[in-house]
Amino acid sequence: MAAASMEELGALLRETLAVWHLEGEVRLDAQEIEVAAAGRRLHIVAAPGDVLFPWLVRTAEKSRGVASVAALLRTVRNALDPEHGGVRLRLAPRGVLPP
């Protein structure tokens, strides 16, 4: 299976804006996803076939490759809401594999 489709990512991002408590919009066409929120705008496009990551996130300042859905969300959030600070998962200190 190929990486997630632009339609799937667009739908995820549309709901993710609400989860982030950001007002904005996600527009989708055959070539890219445009996300606008918090006075910022970025574009997500499929990466060229000769690179290892599936997508590029382009802002006015730079273009960055992302390798996974989790990385994409982090990159988009950092671009739209750089002050959010982030909260990382904490796991209680015990084994995480079956004994």
Binding site: S68, R74, V87, R88
Partner: peptide, 12 residues
């Protein structure tokens, strides 16, 4: 693991 990490990071 990725799911829990993403949930915590973006919606914790």
């Amino acid at each position: 693991a990725l799911f829990l990490e993403t949930l915590a990071e973006h919606a914790g």
